[in-house]
Design a protein around this nucleic acid. Structure first.
Lengths: 206, 206
DNA sequence: GACTGGTTAGTCGGAACCGACTATACGTGG
DNA sequence: CCACGTATAGTCGGTTCCGACTAACCAGTC
């Protein structure tokens, strides 16, 4: 099998992406990511940023350029992309697009135990989620409209498009489930608590 | 603000959910989760399991019951749900359903830099993803049909329903984007490399 | 001209996470 | 009847992650 990717933190991908344009020091990367709203796609944390930069340097995808210092402020180490890093960036990206990775969103976990909430509570909680999602969706769409008005090329805000599509799909699913619960299509098992699947005829507890 | 949840690992939710039915030792929890296919919703790792169980015990949501031992095999510590744990379980669940949490799926990250792949490579990679997703979707639907044939109540396999809905939405989005790229609705910026958003008329780099 | 709040830049230690490992028991085919 | 694979049950140590902290500088302002 292919050896595991040496830098797994996706923030590393963001770093490589930034360094394509120009050399930067870590703090600037963080600031730039926030400016461009990419902190909605990448979990930008100061600590992780410095760790990931070091890791990228260790494997030779980026290299420390200069270590400037203004006055007596802490040093700023500027990094730039190596040729290897450039190749690996494209490959990493390609692989991320090609191959879906198994992830564990918390709503999936919650849905797995939805039965344990009981019908009424489940319906109420789902309705609340729906209304929150609606708000989020409208916010994304508003910012998309704004981008369009400013003639930002769609490719530059395509991640918001994706985010909106997913949020809408989730909202629709919730709506469908709530409807089914209310119409009685989706029924609760006899006893409200257990989520056992097989009654297991051979008792083996003490 | 509300104090941060003392046990954040979602595997803890799964543990609580299992202990509602009956006391168990950690290894059995892992096995049971796998049997019930809940390892598709929760990231079940031996190490994490024991860590999370200890954490749950520390905060008093579960309690160590007995410490049995058969022959000279390692001890099995059996845990059971406390009353507090029962309440917290429902509350946690409720909150997870009510409130969407910001997450960072890797495809969102990839999409954020999709431009850097270049038109042709992006189209190819997306097509590959579409075909993988199609396979996954068919697999889920097959297992859903099987569950129906065995008359498993829908509530018990509802997480697969959700997973399928999300996968389909993602597939559809990818299809739409590929179409737009091919029809030329979604165009590439002049130079293929940079993903800069604002031209920033005031140069400020050294 | 000292104090306050914000920005720039980065360090550090603890918590969480997870893979690799240990060790016993069981079963079964040659 | 024993070697080998598999199931049972859990430990341990290294890496990753991240929040809280340090520390200098700047710009007002009372």
């Amino acid at each position: 099998m292919a050896k595991r990717r040496p830098v797994s933190n996706l923030l590393g991908l963001a770093v490589l992406g930034l360094l394509i344009e120009q050399p930067m020091h870590p703090y600037e990367m963080g600031a730039t990511l926030r400016e461009r709203k990419l902190d909605g796609s990448f979990k930008v944390r100061t600590g992780s940023l410095y760790d990931v930069v070091e890791a990228l340097q260790r494997v030779g995808w980026i290299a420390a350029d200069t270590t400037e210092r203004e006055g007596r402020r802490p040093e700023r180490t500027v990094y730039s992309l190596t040729e290897l890093g450039q190749l690996e960036f494209a490959q990493w990206l390609d692989e991320l697009v090609r191959t879906p990775v198994k992830e564990y969103p918390s709503f999936l976990a919650a849905v797995s135990y939805l039965g344990a909430l009981g019908r009424n509570r489940a319906v109420q909680a789902l309705q609340e989620r729906i209304s929150v999602l609606d708000t989020e969706i409208r916010a994304i769409q508003a910012s998309q409209d704004e981008a369009k008005r400013q003639q930002v090329p769609r490719l530059f805000v395509i991640e918001a498009d994706y985010a909106a599509a997913m949020a809408i799909a989730e909202r629709d699913w919730c709506v469908r489930i709530v409807d089914e619960m209310r119409e009685g299509t989706l029924t609760w098992p006899a006893r409200p608590e257990p989520a056992v699947s097989a009654p297991a005829p051979s008792g083996q507890a003490s």
